[in-house]
Simulated scan of single mutants.
Amino acid sequence: MDQYIILGRIGEGAHGIVFKAKNIETGETVALKKVALRRLDDGIPNQALREIKALQEIEENPHVVKLKAVFPHGAGFVLVFEYMLSDLAEVIRNAQQPLTQAQVKGYMLMLLQGVAFCHANSIMHRDLKPANLLISSTGQLKIADFGLARLFSSDDSRLYSHQVATRWYRAPELLYGARRYDEGVDLWAVGCIFAELLNNSPLFPGENDIEQLCCVLRILGTPTQHTWPELPELPDYNKICFKQKPPVPLEEVLPDAPPQSLQLLRCFLLYPSRERVRAAQPLCLPTTQSCLCPSGAAGWPGRDPSTSMISM
């Protein structure tokens, strides 16, 4: 720690306090995440190990926060990250008026590029939310906080915890107790973030897990075996019953959002995980202001499985 001067406290996470600091030798401003061990024989917390492993094993990417160094300190250790000025939650919170289409498009493009990179490297983030999307002084968005990240594979049958992701961004399969799931949980979170960018407020602000599920069903309608074939297989399917309700048109929920944006949003907010548009699909983006869902998304008229690109 001798090579750093602490400039202030940025925030506190589940496993550490984050400080703004300056490297005395280089003059570089960095973020220091101090992780304390409760007892010396506890070892490094699993979430901290996952974050270190995930960030060290993937190559540098402009939309994933860079881990610069890790070193022991006292009864714990310190992670050194590049310093980022703000986060997307603060951007949304401080916006005096709705974000422009250009702003939403820019943030979504960077988010999708970061998520696509993680998924291409077989990493599920499992806690995507505006507070974990850091923003640099030049407006660059980078995904951070990989404490819940997991490696996955297409033929993976391992069991995962369903108690992941912050509640407002938690995929419905997780709310139903799923222990086997895929990167679709990240794609659902991307859809929730997209809606929040369009509306300056969370789309599904549940106060507890049951209320969270109610918020989802209130807008998307009550799922059935026809709309979600995997539903009866989920662990908590029979624990709670909901009255059948049809979906509410997103045009009524987000009346100020452009039609093309709503069309893309629907591609993320689908009950079956496998039908959610993959993060890499929307990355063929022309310079127009349009934002179109592919005809390759499930449930859309004129579906063509060979079509995979979305223009935004």
Rank of each mutant, 00 (worst) to 15 (best):
D2Y: 04
Q3C: 11
Q3D: 14
Y4N: 05
I5K: 10
L7G: 05
R9D: 13
I10K: 06
G13V: 05
N23M: 05
N23F: 00
N23T: 02
E25N: 12
A36M: 08
R39K: 12
D42E: 13
I44D: 03
P45H: 09
N46T: 14
A48Y: 05
R50Y: 10
L55A: 07
L55D: 09
Q56W: 01
P62Y: 03
V65I: 13
A69K: 13
G76E: 02
V78P: 06
V80P: 05
F81W: 03
Y83Q: 11
L88P: 10
I92E: 01
N94D: 13
N94P: 02
A95S: 15
Q97S: 13
Q103M: 07
Q103K: 08
K105M: 04
K105R: 14
M108K: 02
M108F: 04
L112V: 07
Q113E: 14
V115Q: 05
C118T: 09
C118S: 05
H119W: 01
H125D: 07
L128H: 01
A131H: 09
L134N: 04
I135A: 01
S136R: 09
S137C: 06
T138E: 13
L141I: 08
K142S: 13
S153V: 04
S154A: 13
S154D: 14
D155A: 11
S161P: 00
Q163G: 00
T166I: 00
Y169D: 03
R170E: 04
P172W: 00
L174T: 02
L174W: 02
A178F: 00
R179Q: 12
Y181G: 00
D186I: 10
W188K: 09
W188H: 04
W188L: 06
C192V: 10
E196T: 06
L198W: 01
N199I: 05
N200S: 14
N200D: 07
P205T: 12
L213D: 02
C215I: 03
C215Q: 15
C215E: 12
L217A: 06
L220S: 07
L220H: 01
Q225M: 10
W228L: 05
P232A: 08
E233H: 09
D236Q: 15
D236P: 00
Y237T: 00
K239T: 04
F242M: 01
Q244G: 02
E251A: 15
P255E: 04
Q260R: 13
R266K: 15
L269M: 10
S273P: 11
R276S: 03
P286I: 12
T288I: 08
L292I: 12
A297T: 15
W300I: 15
P301S: 15
G302R: 06
S308R: 11
M309R: 15
M312R: 13
M312L: 12
